[in-house]
Design a protein around this nucleic acid. Structure first.
Lengths: 222, 222
DNA sequence: ACTATTGGTGTATAGCATACACATATGCCC
DNA sequence: GGGCATATGTGTATGCTATACACCAATAGT
């Protein structure tokens, strides 16, 4: 059952897929979207995404699909890679430009559609299409960029404690870090600054609140 | 004058472009292809590339165009990024998946078509489409990967002297390096091994020949 | 044998990443 | 109010890695 649009074509159709991460309750979560496409996929999960229209860029396509499917806007995005395996879509030839998107969990931006959900990375089921591969690429990109950029700023709210920041790192990297060295590194590199405010939360010493310095993504060691 | 193929479409056409580098005579060169497309471009230079067919992946498309336009095959390739600005092609909507390709200059693989040429990076003219931007991205990728991978292996022939390897680095990085530290680094990381052979070339001490160890791309510091 | 040219070698130093243990501020319970 | 539980916050010693730097060696040509 070839799709009538691409069946007449000698060329591929272009789409985008987004791997949107957040850290919530100290866990790394991915945004998933329901895929219902009998006879190939029945009630599977996949990444949100869709066609690139003739009058939009890949990035605009990502924005549109995130907004439409999950009510998410204004998040950090970067292009990941383009996936072009010939049989990656069982219906017809679709080439997909994949994006990595990051947001923070504190802001209570829950998906509007019931057809999307946040899923802890460790519990992601087998996904439709080649989305497992795309997710793996995104995870790898995020992991490595955490070490040599300040990309974590997009996973954190405006103000945060060092414990929260460290938990974000640990949940992405998958291993624990030393508290003192962690703190020292961020402060000596000037990546974060104290806001002067404190957060009281439960029966313990109040934590100082920090914010990332500057704006935008910064690559270290340049 | 809209292209008849894409004019009927709501969607973009997909293409590839390749930035193919080599080091020859101690300079970094890039492969250019002639673009003749009145009234937009008259005898301009651009990157080699072309359409992705319905039955080929992006990588296969790159291989096909490199082979067809310049007679080049069997080179290292990696995906760079996808360029989707709406007006990047003046005729119609074309989204391009750009690739970085590397080869060594020693092998005398000269372009077969007269419509392509090797151009030293420093002398590249203003290119057609958004190819300046693509070239800049490729240069940046190569420069940075040189520092944290053994990607230089694809710019070198099987056996080479340390002087040749260092000249390759210097021509890409654009600055000179210390001979002793350079050598020490490659040997202590086990990236290269001595072949035991020597090359006599002119009125000076013969140089020992080295080869890269292992196979494939290796990322350091893992 | 002398010269010109490129090849080849070692050490000292500074900066950075890592390992590691205890005191502090709060809320809660008795 | 005193003691306890919990998360916050701090400094030093050590090893490794990157860098800076100068001289001798082997050959070809004259």
């Amino acid at each position: 059952m070839p799709n009538p649009i691409s069946a007449q074509l000698r060329f591929a159709v272009l789409a985008t897929d987004v791997v949107c991460f957040r850290v919530a309750s100290g866990r790394l979560e991915v945004l998933l979207a329901k895929v219902h496409l009998p006879p190939f996929y029945k009630n599977r999960w996949g990444l949100p995404g869709g066609i690139i229209l003739a009058d939009e860029t890949a990035e605009q396509s990502v924005e549109r699909h995130l907004k439409t499917k999950a009510g998410i806007a204004q998040v950090y995005k970067e292009q990941l890679a383009t996936f072009s395996r010939i049989d990656r879509d069982p219906r017809n030839r679709v080439v997909s430009v994949a994006y990595l998107a990051l947001m923070h969990g504190g802001e209570e931006r829950e998906p509007t559609a019931t057809e999307t959900r946040w899923c802890p990375l460790a519990e992601v089921p087998k996904l439709a299409y080649d989305h497992d591969e795309i997710l793996a690429a995104a995870t790898e990109r995020l992991r490595s960029k955490l070490s040599y950029t300040n990309i974590a700023r997009y996973l954190m709210p405006r103000a945060f404690t060092f414990s929260e920041l460290q938990r974000a790192y640990e949940s992405v990297l998958g291993h624990v870090l030393d508290k003192r060295n962690f703190r020292k590194r961020f402060l000596s590199l000037g990546l974060v600054r104290a806001t002067g405010k404190k957060r009281k939360e439960g029966a313990q010493r109040p934590a100082e609140l920090f914010a990332f310095t500057g704006t935008g993504l910064r690559t270290l060691g340049l």
